[in-house]
Each structure stands twice: as structure tokens, then as C-alpha cells.
Design a binder for these strands. Structure first.
Length: 189
DNA sequence: GAAAAGATCTTCT
DNA sequence: GAAGATCTTTTCC
């Protein structure tokens, strides 16, 4: 079992890197929104900062679903955050999507955000608002509309920057945040 | 431009 | 009853 936790941890970090450059496609009100993932963070059950650290609960149930599902939670009373589940069934692991580079549907995003430019999607709460991602989609299978994840070729490692995570107090010195080098949509460079 | 404060509510103790 | 994987606005340099 010790070995199992080790590899769960290795794999979620690997998935967080691998998700950089992949596309999120959202269909809403007859419109298609697209964005490219530029910043991620890895969380799993071995990690004190993770919602799954203390095991299953009502809130984190979706994080224990099959890999490739969405785990969406509500934070600070007014924001939602999107995760891609990577563990599956017996262990909770997920990658937080912290920032997107908008590709399509700018007008819709500007209207929802009441902001323009990089402020559309350069933060986990911001991108959920821009893409109308709410907890109705918690536990959604990301192979299907109205919210899909499209795989893209892996980025070369010299394009990826690794740092500590944002906004946490536990395990704050662990290198579990990944972003695309010099991308203006990264939440905090 | 940085720092501080306020908004606002679900989940878990 | 408190904490929290955040964002906006205001207030100061």
C-alpha cells in the first residue's frame, strides 16, 4: 500500500504537467467556448493540502470518481474551482486548473466576467465564471459535452515552470504547481 | 503597483 | 462556529 500512495502521488503530478496545453471546450447557450490550459496544481490523498487528505466526504465525492471526471467545489462563498480527477475510485487525486488562455468565445467571457484581457481567465475562480462552470457539472464525464477535455501533444519540459502552490497553508513548500513559461494568462508569474 | 479589507456561504468540527 | 485550492475594490504610497 505504501507503494500505491507513492505512485498515486507521482502520477497526479505527471498528469498536472501533461494537462498543460490541453484544451477545455464548453458549450453553453448555443455557444462554444474554448481555452488552453496554462497553469495547474496537483493534489492527492497523501497531501495535507488536498480536500481528499482526510478521506471521502459529501463535498469531495466527485474527486473519488473515475479519472477524467470533473471535481468542482465552491470556495470563499462565491467562487467555483475546476479539477480534473486523476486517481479513480479507490483514491482521491485531482489536478486544479488555475488558468486558461482563451481561444474562442471572447465576447461571452467578457460579458460574464465584466473584465477584458488576461483578467478573463487568469485564476481558478475567474475561469469558472468566464466559462460558466458551476457545481451542476460536479462529477461530469469530461469526454462528453457540455464540458470536454481535449488532449494535445505534451509540451517539452523546458517550456514548463515548477513552483510551490498558491493560497494554501499546509504542505506549502511542495513543488506541485506547473505553468507554461512566459504565458500572460498564468495567474501569478 | 502593492497592500489591505470586504464579500459571502458551504463544509466539516 | 471557523476555515477556506479566491477575487474585487479601495486605499495608500
Amino acid at each position: 500500500m505504501e507503494n500505491y500512495w507513492h505512485w498515486l502521488d507521482v502520477l497526479v503530478k505527471e498528469a498536472a504537467k501533461r494537462l498543460l496545453g490541453c484544451e477545455i471546450v464548453r458549450v453553453i447557450d448555443g455557444q462554444v467556448l474554448r481555452g488552453r490550459i496554462v497553469e495547474t496544481e496537483a493534489y492527492d490523498q497523501t497531501d495535507p493540502a488536498s480536500h481528499t487528505y482526510t478521506g471521502r466526504s459529501i463535498r469531495n465525492e466527485a474527486a473519488f470518481r473515475s479519472a477524467g471526471y470533473a471535481y468542482i467545489y465552491h470556495i470563499y462563498g462565491l467562487h467555483n474551482c475546476l479539477n480534473i480527477v486523476t486517481g479513480g475510485e479507490i483514491a482521491g487525486a485531482a489536478v486544479l486548473i488555475r488558468a486558461l488562455e482563451p481561444l474562442q468565445g471572447f465576447e461571452y467571457m467578457e460579458e460574464r466576467r465584466r473584465q477584458t484581457g488576461k483578467n478573463l481567465t487568469n485564476g481558478p475562480g475567474k475561469l469558472c465564471q468566464a466559462f460558466s462552470i458551476t457545481r451542476e457539472l460536479n462529477g461530469h464525464d469530461l469526454l462528453r459535452p457540455p464540458l470536454q477535455l481535449l488532449q494535445e501533444p505534451a509540451l517539452p519540459s523546458n517550456e514548463i515552470v515548477v513552483t510551490t502552490r498558491i493560497g494554501i497553508t499546509k504542505a506549502a513548500d511542495e513543488l506541485r504547481r506547473f505553468y507554461i513559461k512566459a504565458n500572460p494568462y498564468v495567474s501569478k508569474l
